[in-house]
Every structure is written in structure tokens, then in C-alpha cells.
Nucleic acid binder design. Structure first.
Lengths: 167, 167
DNA sequence: CTTCATGCAAATAGTTTGCAAGAAG
DNA sequence: CTTCTTGCAAACTATTTGCATGAAG
């Protein structure tokens, strides 16, 4: 099974969900210390993060915080549109504050430090790429390379491959 | 961690290796019934598939085939360059025959049938998107929508959202 | 006080590994 | 016959769920 219960990519999408089972969740859920911590972590880091990453840092504020609570809150926060799930290739879901994802954008993953960064703007115009009969509704673009910090850092072991191997 | 550098782990070679370096794996590994089945499934389906998907179909040829064998063979086949790991956003790794991935291409995932298709050609020119100081070395582009088969199929339960909501 | 969220642990699901038995060369 | 591979099960990791306790309103 995949993660079909929720929208796998929080980008532009229109899901004609036939089952009205899921009642629209009230936006005013309880304000708990743990949810505040999660929100704070995402805000202070300012980059897409994984649940375990978030837990690690949020524990500084709420030591007894459990991973299950992180997952539950993240899911709830996605539901109310406070945060957005960021699907990265071959990896698990990352999350970031929704206001950062307000406008469609892409992501950059540093091959050195493994961190993920937002890239403003959208290349767009991929509708033509799909074969005859295919309807394109959304897309995900992820760039890989070396971030500014790692690139400037002279402590790189051996020469970093800086030639773009894009065709 | 990522899809880029996962060298296969030591299988069952307990023989004293003079060189600590991992010797380049011989391309001519043992031809087993199970590996042939896996290869055949990938060839006949002609699309990126997940290990569980492959197992399901390959079992028709080798009923007692186990999931562990599928994983081990897929990893070995990637090592010798026979197949390629396809990283899709927020999902697990898919695999496809290497000759299909010879030239850089992208993927399309149908929101209806969940299948993944190859899209020939590359949009390219994403080097400019990254911020100052960032070096782009590679990219992954995945399109989402409705495939030709699901789009034509009138048996769709509820109206399919056919309007492209790309910016 | 009533209801909902938490924390912990058990339950899932995908993937990896140990090991004895079986197959390939 | 020797070595590599398989199949099964246990081990792991990531994520989800059940339930009694505890906090929010």
C-alpha cells in the first residue's frame, strides 16, 4: 500500500474525493505545548524536515515528546493547511510551513550535507512532455548538487564534482 | 540513505579478502531461475516497478520466490548496471531495465492506477533555478496526472479532474 | 468536568540480514 | 564438490494505532 489516504504531493492538485466520509476537520484544534514546539522547529529551521528530524529538535522544548505525537500533529497540520508535505525522490516525506509553499516551487538537495532547500519559482510548461492521451495535473522537480555553504567550504575532502552532468 | 550511493552490502563472502577494497563485481553471476523471472517481469511490463510488484508477478514463474531474493537480486542487478533504481517522490524505489534509462528521462505517475511510466526526453536547463552559489549536478522530474488508459476508460467511478492545474 | 491529545507500547509495512538447505558450475 | 543463492524467519526502520492517563478549554 502506498500513502494513498492523503494527497502525496501538496502541490497544485484537485482530488475529486468520492467518499465524503472525512468530515472537514476544524481548524481550531487544541493548542498544545507539543504542537507549538513542532511549529516552532519548522519555523526556526526554515527548511523541509522529516518527522524524526523534527522530533529530535522539538525534544529540547518538550523532552517527553513522542514520535507518534509528531506524526499525528504533522498530519493534522497538513489537514488544516498549516504545513505542507514535501515528497522527495526515493525518500520519505518532508514537511515545511505552508506559507513557504504558498507559491509552487521546487527543491534542492545538497549531496554533501543532505539538507533540503526551497527553490523559489517554477520551471513549468511540462504539459507537453507527456505522451499522447496523458493529462498532466501536477509535477515535482528536485535538483541535486552542492549547496552554497558546502561549495564554499574548503574542507571538502577531494575535489567536488562541479561539472553539471545534465544532458 | 539516498538513492545515489547504496553499494551492496556484504552478501555471504566470508573468504579472506586480501584487498579491503570492494572488487568490481563480476557481471557473470550465477544464472538462477529467480533472477531470470525478475528480469522477465521487468521486460514484459516495460515500466518502473516496486519490489513487491515484481514479486507478485514473478511468483507466477517461481511460486516459492521470496521477497528477500527479489531485493537481493535487484540490488545486484543495479550493481552490474542491468537495471536502474528509479526514485519517485515520497515513495519507495522503483526499478526498471537499464536500457530504458540509457538516456536521461523523466516519469509520469497516474493518479488513477498508480502506475509509473517513462517519459522520453528531458526538459533540462534547470541550472539557473538554483540560488547563488548552488551547483546543480542532477535533477529528478516527475509528472502526475491521468494516463491514456485511465483517461479513455469511461468506467471511471467519478468524474476525473482533467483540467491541468499547472501554473 | 468533559473531551481531546499525549505517551508508551504494540501493530503494520517495507527492507535487510543470518543461516541452513539447495542449486549452479 | 565447492561456492553462491535461495527461502524462511528474525531483525530493523519508518509509520500507524490502541488505550489509559493527563491536559485544555
Amino acid at each position: 500500500m502506498t500513502h494513498s489516504h492523503d494527497c502525496h504531493h501538496g502541490h497544485a492538485h484537485s482530488h475529486p474525493e468520492p467518499t465524503p466520509q472525512e468530515p472537514p476537520r476544524l481548524a481550531g484544534e487544541r493548542a498544545t505545548r507539543q504542537r507549538a514546539a513542532i511549529r516552532e522547529v519548522l519555523a526556526s529551521e526554515g527548511r523541509p524536515m522529516t518527522p524524526p528530524e523534527i522530533l529530535e529538535i522539538a525534544k529540547r522544548h518538550v523532552p517527553r515528546l513522542g514520535i507518534a505525537t509528531v506524526y499525528r500533529n504533522l498530519k493534522a497540520m497538513v489537514d488544516v493547511g498549516e504545513i505542507t508535505a514535501v515528497p522527495l525522490p526515493g525518500d520519505r516525506l518532508y514537511y515545511e510551513l505552508a506559507h513557504r509553499a504558498r507559491e509552487h516551487h521546487h527543491h534542492f538537495r545538497c549531496n554533501e550535507c543532505e539538507r533540503v532547500f526551497d527553490i523559489p519559482g517554477c520551471a513549468g510548461g511540462f504539459g507537453d512532455l507527456a505522451p499522447q492521451g496523458f493529462t498532466v495535473q501536477a509535477h515535482d522537480l528536485t535538483l541535486y548538487g552542492v549547496c552554497a555553504e558546502c561549495g564554499t567550504d574548503a574542507t571538502s575532502p577531494e575535489g567536488i564534482a562541479t561539472e553539471a552532468d545534465l544532458p
